[in-house]
Design a protein around this nucleic acid. Structure first.
Lengths: 94, 94
DNA sequence: ATTCTATTTAGAAAATTATCTAAATAGTTT
DNA sequence: AAACTATTTAGATAATTTTCTAAATAGAAT
């Protein structure tokens, strides 16, 4: 159940902002870091968590590691939330 | 920005399970607690966090406090995720 | 008014998470 | 191969979160 990991990953504001940055396209770890007042090591830590949650993936090119959004896991989250909303009274329990 | 609070609240497995319990209808704090191996104090702590995140609301009746799902905030979360998914390339940036 | 029941609050301890500095990797360029 | 660049890993510290026990509230029942 990587599900819990995904929610955990999404719970941090820095990580959510990283995802928003990646919305516009792939970025290197350094590029991402330049948007924050943090050391590269800390950014790397956040990237690792996002990676483990399957929210991003990397591709190496030259000296750089580029990160990209992986939207597929977001579907699952949407589904969970959607069911929480939808499953009212006893409509689906039959 | 209660947005961050909501994500934080959703990041804990116990709290997500509480929400799932409430999906079927209102429950008292005690009823909720009986589903977990935790003291009532801890359950109360989690309920407070869910309340602050606007994910649940309470209504007092007799000796009991009943908790209910509040789905309205979930819309916002869905929207955020949905935009993360949808906003690819430069389709909407124009 | 005392006692009982349901729940919360306070304070402390344990566990987890975010951050830093320093060192390690690994690939690039000279 | 030596030096440089980009990034990660390790280990430590600080901050936050989860959990507990004990005490406080508050309403209900006797």
């Amino acid at each position: 159940m990587a599900f819990a990991e995904t929610f955990k990953a999404l719970s941090d504001p820095v990580r959510r902002q990283i995802l928003e940055l990646l919305k516009k396209g792939p970025l290197s770890a350094g590029d991402i870091g330049s948007h924050f007042e943090m050391t590269g090591a800390t950014i790397s830590y956040h990237l690792k968590i996002l990676k483990q949650a399957d929210l991003i993936f990397e591709s190496r090119e030259k000296n750089f590691i580029y990160y990209q959004l992986n939207t597929s896991v977001l579907e699952e989250i949407m589904l969970w939330i959607s069911e929480l909303k939808g499953g009212n009274s006893d409509a689906e329990s039959k």
